[in-house]
C-alpha cells in the first residue's frame, strides 16, 4: 500500500519509492529511503498536502507524491 492511504497517527516502514526521478530523488534526499519508518501526522484543511514525520522531523508533501511511496505497516 502507499503512504497516501496510511491513516493519521499510523507508523509504517518505507519499502519502495516509485515514479518520476526528480521527485523520487528529492524525497530520498530528504531521508525517505527504503527501510526508514514514517508516520502520518495530519492533513491540511483542504485535504492536501499531508504532514509526515520521518527521521525525527516534519515533512509536508502532496498526496500525489505520497502515492509514490510504498509502505508496509
Amino acid at each position: 500500500m502507499n503512504l497516501a492511504k496510511l491513516s493519521i497517527g499510523k507508523e509504517a516502514k518505507v519499502i519502495k519509492i516509485n515514479g518520476n526521478s526528480a521527485i523520487t530523488r528529492r524525497l530520498m534526499e530528504m531521508g525517505v529511503i527504503p527501510g526508514v519508518s514514517i508516520k502520518v501526522i495530519k492533513t491540511a484543511p483542504f485535504g492536501d498536502p499531508i504532514e509526515v514525520r520521518v527521521r525525527g522531523y516534519s515533512l509536508a508533501m502532496r498526496r500525489n507524491e505520497a502515492e509514490t511511496i510504498e509502505v508496509s505497516e
Partner: peptide
C-alpha cells in the same frame, strides 16, 4: 513543483 517541504520546529 514537488511540494516536498520541511515544516521546521
Amino acid at each position: 513543483p514537488p511540494f516536498v517541504m520541511e515544516l521546521p520546529p
